[in-house]
Amino acid sequence: MPLSPGYKSTVLRAPLRPLHAVEQSALERSGPALGNTALGPLDHDLIRNAAQGGDALGERIYVFGQVLDENARPVPNALIEIWQANAAGRYAHVKDGYLAPLDPNFSGCGRCVSDGEGRYLFRTIKPGPYPWPNNGSDWRPAHIHLSIFGEAFAQRLVTQLYFEGDPLIPLCPIVNTIPDPAAIDRLVARLDMRNQEPFDCLAYRFDIVLRGRRQTHFETRPEGA
């Protein structure tokens, strides 16, 4: 739900009136072609893309999957930007005052573009959980933030992925802004042993489904989705 009192920041920031549903026009059915952005060779590799003489510390993982639309069509050329805390749960951000240490070899920023079949891949370290001021000291489950541009501006998505088996997921007020357990489950990346890099890193699969074309005024985005 937009207003979720358990997540205190929503109290003054969630609009209180219902969204105004309109049909998509040619503007929202198209979008910026950011998939054509020239990428640096290490943009998708957070273990190395801020390294100053050594790899980032932490549990080495691949995060990979496929970008699809609601009709299961792959979305090629989707720009995916990610940001995350380091293995100790600390962000490389001036506003993060958590006492856990920074990692000089890790900035927590990456990006990639999906290929012709909508597939994407990042190499990174598993972020640590961290405390935040909300109902005293709440804790965020380990998570990676993602921003995705599909083919249409109406498909714009910013979300967070979580990791299978994390006991903090059901305790998190931000996760619980989503009332539907099946929808929460769609934010959980699955351990995928077949796609590990032997003697190097584990792999988590996370598929991303972008909204399709809306035809009528009456099919609206479910609240909290």
């Binding site: 951000h93 506003k95 993060d96 920023c109 933030h145 972008l210």
Partner: peptide
């Protein structure tokens, strides 16, 4: 049909990634 991936807040550190 597939179900849309739900949105979550960009959070206070959105600047790192965007």
């Amino acid at each position: 049909k597939l179900q849309e991936t739900p949105s979550q807040t960009a959070g206070p550190y959105v600047h790192i990634g965007t």
